[in-house]
Design a binder for these strands. Structure first.
Lengths: 187, 187
DNA sequence: ATGTTAATGAACACTTTGTACGGTAATAGT
DNA sequence: ACTATTACCGTACAAAGTGTTCATTAACAT
């Protein structure tokens, strides 16, 4: 890929991310991004059709990555003593967020968290499905499988959102316990 | 209140609601609303400062009402045989949605559901808090109270969202069972 | 060295926004 | 019924943003 293209693309992503930290998405104009990235008007439109596509591509990069790192993990199992056999996917994700993905964390803590939590959830569903669906566990209660996958995914995302909203006081381990606390009957 | 004011206010709400059914919120312009409501430009701004305030006032009316009808209900109790003592608040809300609030349902099924689910959740939290907080139940597991209130509220809203997304095939009673199925350890 | 591709900057018509104004008609209070 | 008030209308306005075009310049790959 052409170095020039790569550079402007990164300039746009950078400018966009910086602006997202300052004010809500819907009141960021293409003009703002152009000014902040210091590029020509036509250049922006050569890279992204609209502001929304820019957002989508940014999220695909960010969340695609974090979910991929968890995709290969051994599946979590629920034991009758209420402990996970090994560190759960969830704990893994939380640790990864806190240690590696400060970029994502800042977006999730911004005024635009709702947007990014949505993207997070979408990617999480795939992960949850691959982790739990094949185990018979999910069907035991006579509940539709995709209802449960949806419930687990959104509950986790909500947990992370709650955690960030309150200032991330808890350690990943503590927070993971909270989540298990409300999930044990399901998983 | 002046009849003229009331009429234009309703005209604006009506136009806005109709437009929300057609396309996403963020690509509805004030101009669109003015045209659809067939009112003067200045008139709109005499009533609402911005499009966002219009949205807020609409949601306050809609969700304030539905939550109020549930506010006075007797509190739900969880029994050891996994049944609610009486019809739960949740079942009540679902019935009310299906029977009386078709207006809300159409907004929740629109492309803009995320926005309205947010407002729904905010109002629901107050309700959940008043229903369950005073019972000692919520603190038993060593989990923060507002974490649980948040978890219950968002899970219910997610349940409704899932229900609508899939075409509302289940009856309020069935759906309520689903919800109880993932909630029983918490409530 | 050369042909290709990207970025530039300026210009374009167009839409939206929020505010202002005098004129007109419905309304509420007495 | 009369009057003062208030809301709406229509039009106009400057300001800002949008998406596209085009000729020019510079960086790139081979």
């Amino acid at each position: 890929m052409d170095r020039r293209q790569r550079k402007t693309r990164e300039a746009i992503f950078g400018a966009f991310t910086r602006l997202l930290g300052k004010r809500p998405y819907h009141q960021i104009t293409v003009q703002d991004i152009i000014d902040e990235a210091d590029i020509g008007r036509a250049t922006f439109y050569a890279h992204f059709e609209t502001k929304d596509y820019l957002l989508k591509e940014l999220c695909d990069e960010l969340f695609g990555h974090i979910v991929d790192t968890a995709m290969g993990l051994p599946h979590s199992h629920f034991h009758y003593d209420c402990k996970m056999a090994s560190d759960s996917v969830f704990l893994h994700l939380l640790r990864h967020l806190q240690e590696n993905d400060l970029n994502i964390l800042s977006l999730l803590s911004s005024q635009n968290n709702e947007i990014f939590l949505q993207y997070f959830k979408i990617n999480l569903k795939k992960l949850i499905h691959s982790q739990f669906a094949e185990q018979g566990k999910l069907k035991e209660r006579g509940l539709p499988e995709d209802y449960l996958v949806n419930h687990i995914s959104s509950s986790f995302v909500e947990t992370v959102s709650w955690w960030i909203r309150r200032g991330m006081k808890e350690s990943p381990e503590e927070l993971s316990k909270y989540f298990e606390g409300v999930m044990t009957t399901v998983i």
